[in-house]
Design a protein around this nucleic acid. Structure first.
Lengths: 129, 129
DNA sequence: GGTCGATTTGACAATGATTCCCATCCGCGT
DNA sequence: ACGCGGATGGGAATCATTGTCAAATCGACC
């Protein structure tokens, strides 16, 4: 049966931070933000809750080029991200054509159980100035 | 001025391994392969040479979902990868449609200087059995 | 072939993100 | 209020990768 997570102060605090954030943030950044808010939460707990949220598909996770895992609250459903490499501003985008193309080429080569990662990076209009 | 790298035994050994490999391999795997070949090379040196090759665009690098950086000798030009998550077997694929789509959506949102990452993971026919 | 300087190497320490461990805590059903 | 099992926290442990620096060694020049 499905386990129902408990409604702890820490879990609420992590979720609240994610509500307020616009772009992606690392676990450590979220940990710092919590501390500055006075809602101190153990680092391990931040990691655990973020992973739990990611597993539950309530937040999206991606790795930046430094190897950190970044988290962000996103709309439901499969989508990709257009991220400003300067300010982090993120636009969620969908590409049904891309999905089909990826599944198609993989199947053509005999691959099964297909997944893909796609992120678009650029400099947003404001930062370009 | 541009520095010319020196032609050391270690650099040659790393390049030779990459010649022989079909799929992506981590720095540590390459280090082990070198050892088994009798061409022992220090782990630091393997990392350094792989990075140098990646910087020179002579090999492609990507991160798997465990956070390891994988390296592979690839054809030149822009392409993406279809990687078996079990054995690492890799097919290089091109998707002009995807490129155009990515550039298009980014431009629509006012982003400039656009780049993207796209990798497809699956289990190849042999490993699926 | 020998010399020399700058690059490269390699063993080990250090880093940094993330996970493990485990005694303690506390949400929640009874 | 009680008690149990999941949740917490914080310090240790892990793991890939990078830094350090003395020693080795390319390769240009004699």
């Amino acid at each position: 049966m499905v386990v129902t997570p408990r409604n702890t102060r820490q879990r609420r605090a992590v979720a609240a931070i994610l509500e307020d954030l616009e772009g992606f943030a690392s676990a450590q950044e979220i940990h710092d933000l919590l501390r500055h808010r006075g809602e101190s939460v153990g680092l391990s707990t931040v990691y655990r809750n973020l992973q739990a949220l990611a597993d539950a598909a309530e937040v999206d996770a991606l790795r930046n080029d430094e190897g950190e895992t970044l988290y962000r609250q996103c709309s439901t459903g499969h989508h990709h991200h257009l991220v400003c490499r300067a300010c982090g501003r993120t636009v969620e985008v969908e590409g049904p054509t891309v999905e089909r193309w990826a599944d198609g080429v993989a199947a053509q080569h005999g691959y099964v159980d297909i997944a893909h990662t796609l992120e678009i990076f650029g400099t947003c209009g404001d930062c370009a100035r």
